[in-house]
Design a protein around this nucleic acid. Sequence first.
DNA 1: TGTACATCAGTGAACGCGCGTTCACTGATGTAC
DNA 2: TGTACATCAGTGAACGCGCGTTCACTGATGTAC
Lengths: 242, 242
Amino acid sequence: LGVRLFTDFSVPWTRSENSCLLNDVSHSGERSSGSRQEQKARTRRALLDAGLRLLEEQSLSSLGLREITRAVRIAPAAFYRHFRDIPDLGVALVAEALGSVHEMVGAILAGQDDSDERIEETVEAIARYVRDHRAHLRFVSRERHGSVRAVREAIAAELSRFADEVATALAPGPTYAGWDYRDMRMLSELYVDHMVTTAAAFLETADADEAAQAAREHAVARTACRQLKLIRTGCRHWPAAG
Amino acid sequence: LGVRLFTDFSVPWTRSENSCLLNDVSHSGERSSGSRQEQKARTRRALLDAGLRLLEEQSLSSLGLREITRAVRIAPAAFYRHFRDIPDLGVALVAEALGSVHEMVGAILAGQDDSDERIEETVEAIARYVRDHRAHLRFVSRERHGSVRAVREAIAAELSRFADEVATALAPGPTYAGWDYRDMRMLSELYVDHMVTTAAAFLETADADEAAQAAREHAVARTACRQLKLIRTGCRHWPAAG
DNA sequence: TGTACATCAGTGAACGCGCGTTCACTGATGTAC
DNA sequence: TGTACATCAGTGAACGCGCGTTCACTGATGTAC
């Protein structure tokens, strides 16, 4: 057993849909035990990667099982060794995509203050994160309101966790001394929604011309910073005197 | 020529995919001139309605041309008399959906002040609008970041127009006396994004239990109101003193 | 008013195609003795 | 260390099906005289 996995999309050179290729992933140096499950894990990864790549230009509900297995160069039926169906793969992608966002959010929240510099660093962190995880975030942004219920719910659950984390991290700050739970929650939801909107805006700055893209990113960042500063100003004077 | 158009989804009673039905839409009372184009317009409407209905549970990229024509009970080929392809129908739906939102936004902006009552009326207007135009708004929310470029761009263009309208309407207010164009633009974009997010949240309150749905709607409305009040507070103290 | 002709929305059959799922199978990896 | 057996990731052929698009067509509506 063993198959060379492809995640590139080069045109196949054979006419047959599923070409059988010799294994060239030798495990000679590794401890033999576990190599079967390692191979399985590698195929699973290849399926997720290929799916993610295909999802940059389409939505989950139109993604074909055969399309993915073709990209990975395995037989269609092999898909079922790893996922029940396409939505199941989608849920796995959500876990992967938003799991790693938790780290970024944690880093942003650590040692939080509300200085201008902090806001600018936060927006810059989002910009960087989008640049480095474009495919994952495009997927989440697209499927957040997509037609696959299980995926929508998985995303909503993760975003709700983000709101919890933000609320917990901010609450001890001096700005929020008199705030009740509802206030903290509405603020953290506003921040999370703003983060999602900003990330989506960064995603849409993609441009063939590198300079043009940088300029558009800069514009999005400036707007996002001002909006965060406006919200911060609101926080400092909350609840409103009149 | 003439065909009875169906927009209901009842199970067909014949085994043949396209059953030919007698015309029962008589035009006897109408002036004969224009009745051909009226019939065409009626079919077009039926296609849009059926598409919209099907799109409540799927995304545009997975919507089938045959699926729509089956719902309307016309031959698949007849679709091409009205739209070039499915994305083309999608763009028509965007124009329809967001065209009517312009009216609501206009009504909200007319005689704008920033009292608590005003904010609550605004959120209530959004809730009502979502209740009355669920399918249209679900479609827009889903396709805003969907995989069909033409539709995404049409939506983005409309939202940008909303931001313009909001900026123009708010600018004369006393609160915004010292604001430059960039500030007004970032604020109006924040408002538009917030409106979109809130509308999407209302969409997701759908629940079989009517009382449960009302409760969830109320929770969304309360949060949205507080967020708008927070932003308003920010506006009143903008630019930040420290 | 009546007749001959043009228009064109909708038909229905045909096409080639790729889809998701099933199934018995293969053969390398892993294990028990 | 060697042998016999179990496991199971991946195979490849087959299935029935619905898809988007094309085409020559039909026949009611509309128009010119």
